[in-house]
Structures are given as structure tokens and as C-alpha cells.
Design a protein around this nucleic acid. Structure first.
Lengths: 202, 202
DNA sequence: GTCTATAACGAGATAGAC
DNA sequence: GTCTATCTCGTTATAGAC
């Protein structure tokens, strides 16, 4: 019988490691957790971790790579919906909101803070994550402008940057207060400002 | 002769330490620099650093305390100007822009990412920094609404949160690209949206 | 794949001389 | 205030048995 992804054995442990490391990285940052933390949580030794991820740099790169792919998949689902641009924007914010709802920071926003201390492969994965966010947002923003649900001035890229920046920044601050309303209210207000039919009521 | 703040001796070295530690903290984060880094840069030993700041927690708290006070002073100067609210908002963004222009992240935005790993005294200083930002912004926003230079919907507090979040977040992302335009353009766009006389052109 | 054992280094911190 | 010397602990990483 052929070995599959869902079989026992090779591959499962490394996913488990990534799951645990992801939570640690999203709550404490790349420089805020160690192999010992992961080992204690999973119940294997540090040496075993090095079998799956030889270096912490390789673990970090795998972490961001998987996060980025999962994120892209979520965005692709939203893009495929038969909804106006404004609604897709709300769902996009909802993806970030779910991360915060799980008491985590966006992995890539977290790593962006530590950017200058990260191994180069991780830095590359990070930029790719943000590039993919921008590409997706530009498409949705222009779509929304065409379908009449969104209104904004200037380049879609600048508005995309504002959205991502506001989402990441609001998440960052909300975590310092353990108060998710500090994310939901400002982000909701920003999206409302971009919605058509809001001329006199900003 | 009485010993003053500007005299040689006690007090000067600790300021020097804070200066060097501040740059390190703003570029690498609290968990990304060590006493050894500071010592090497200043040219004294680690032991001497411990004379001025017994623990790294005390150094971190002093760092945020001083940063917060300097920031407050800058905001007070802007508040005292005889300018409309919209202009004060632009100057506020300019304060953040100067930090980024010096190739640094906002100290408090950086520490906010590492929040859960920080000693409690530092966490308190951080919240105070953001509280002071919000208080100042709410005042300016309401002033701008009265003087007719600003227009926004709902509570000033939510708009203040959006501004701080967007500033911190855009800074974070701009640093990953070494591209300050990724801060200036989105932030400029957000402020423009809040300006009166912009109804049909968002 | 997982273990024990250990290497090699850097971290924050202290004692005590000068 | 600054130094040398040292301590203790945590870090990433490797060697080699099972």
C-alpha cells in the first residue's frame, strides 16, 4: 500500500511541529521561542526536532511558507465568490479577524517587526506574502470600482497598502490591550469609508 | 558647585546607553539585542551597564519611558500651533515619518509585537504611550471637526485607533521592503480621506 | 525517527578590586 | 563608575546508539 499524506509515520510529526511552532511564533515572535519550547509541548526531544528541521532558519521558512499558502488558499476562495468588491473586502478583513480572535498576531506581521534579525530565506517568504496580499487586493479593489461597490482615489496599490497596513497595525495594538474591539472598530470604519454611498458621512 | 544635568559624571553615561539601546531596540526588538551589543558599541563592559541598569527589564522600561516623554513633547508642540486640525494630523504623521526616515521602527510598535514576552513594567509603559496617542488624536480630531477641516463618521476614538494602527502597520511593512514610499503613500491617502472637500474623490 | 549526551556559545547577572 | 572574573542558565546544533 502506498504511503499517503494521511498515513501514520513520516510527515505527520513535522506538521505537528509546525502547528506548535506557529502558535509560539505568532504569540512570541521568531526570537521569542526555542526548540525547547516546542519539544516540551509536543513531548519529544530537541534532537528529534532537528531531524525534521535541521536549523531554526529552516523551521522559520517552512512556517512562513505554509502560512502564506494557507492564506493564499483562503483568499482564492473569497475571490471566487459571486459577491461585490466591498463584500470581498469585508471577508478579507475577516480572515485577519479570525487570527486575532484566536489570540494570535498575524505570523507575517509579527516577523515583519523582527525583519532585520531574520535569516534571508525567511525575509524572502515574508515579502512574497505581502506581495500576494497586495496583488489580491488590487484585483478586488479594481473589481469593486467597476461593479460600483467601492470608491477610492488614486492607485489601487496605495489603497491596498493602506488596508494591509491598517489591518496589521490594528492587530498589533489590539493585542497590547487584549481588546479585539480595537481591531474591529477601526478596520470596520476604514472599509466603510471605501464603500460607495458614504459621501457625506465619514 | 552643584552638580547639574549638563555636568560631566553621573547621568551622562546612562543617556548614552539609552541612545545606543534605543537604536538597537527600534531595529531589532527587545529580544533582538543584548548587553554585549550595547557594551561593544559604547566601549564599556557589560558589568558597567548593570551599574546603570541592573536588569534588562529596567533598561527596557527606561527606554519606553523616555521615548514616550519625548513623543509627548513633540505632540504638545504640534497641539500648541495655530493650525487647523487637518494640518496637525499631517504633522502627527510626520513625527512617525521621521522615525522611519531614520531607518527605525517606532519603539512602541516594535515592542507591541513582542508584548507577551515583555516584563510587566514595560507593558504598562507601552499602554500609556498608546493611551497618550489616542487622547491627543481625539482632541485634534474633534478640533478639526469643529474648525471644518476634518470630516469623519462615528466616534473620534475609532478614527484615532485607525490612524495609529495604519501608521504603525504601514511603518512595519515599509521596513520589510526598505521602501519608505510604502509608508508615505498609504498614510497620505488616509489623511486625505479625512480631509473636508474630498467627497466625490476617494 | 527518536533517544541520550554533549558540545559550543551567548545570554543576563553578580562579586569584589580599583 | 568602571573594571576583571566568574556564575548559571538557555540557546542552537551535532554525534552516535537504538
Amino acid at each position: 500500500m502506498a504511503r499517503t499524506k494521511s498515513s501514520q509515520g513520516a510527515g505527520v510529526t513535522s506538521e505537528r511541529i509546525l502547528d506548535v511552532a506557529e502558535v509560539l511564533a505568532q504569540t512570541r515572535g521568531f526570537n521569542g521561542f526555542s526548540y525547547a519550547d516546542i519539544a516540551a509541548e509536543i513531548g519529544i526531544t530537541k534532537a528529534s526536532l532537528h531531524y525534521h528541521f535541521p536549523t531554526k532558519a529552516s523551521l522559520g521558512a517552512a512556517l512562513v511558507g505554509r502560512y502564506r499558502e494557507n492564506f493564499q488558499a483562503a483568499l482564492a476562495k473569497i475571490a471566487a465568490l459571486n459577491e461585490p468588491g466591498i463584500e470581498k473586502l469585508r471577508l478579507y478583513a475577516g480572515v485577519y479577524g479570525q487570527v486575532l480572535g484566536a489570540d494570535r498576531m498575524c505570523l507575517c506581521g509579527m516577523f515583519a517587526a523582527e525583519f532585520s534579525t531574520l535569516p534571508e530565506p525567511i525575509q524572502g517568504e515574508l515579502r512574497q506574502f505581502f506581495d500576494e496580499n497586495e496583488t489580491w487586493l488590487v484585483r478586488v479593489l479594481e473589481e469593486g470600482r467597476r461593479d460600483g461597490s467601492l470608491r477610492f482615489e488614486g492607485s489601487a496599490a496605495d489603497t491596498a497598502g493602506l488596508l494591509t497596513g491598517a489591518l496589521e497595525g490594528s492587530m498589533l495594538l489590539a493585542r497590547s490591550y487584549r481588546d479585539n474591539a480595537r481591531f474591529i472598530a477601526p478596520v470596520g470604519k476604514l472599509i466603510q469609508v471605501l464603500a460607495v454611498g458614504n459621501e457625506a458621512s465619514r
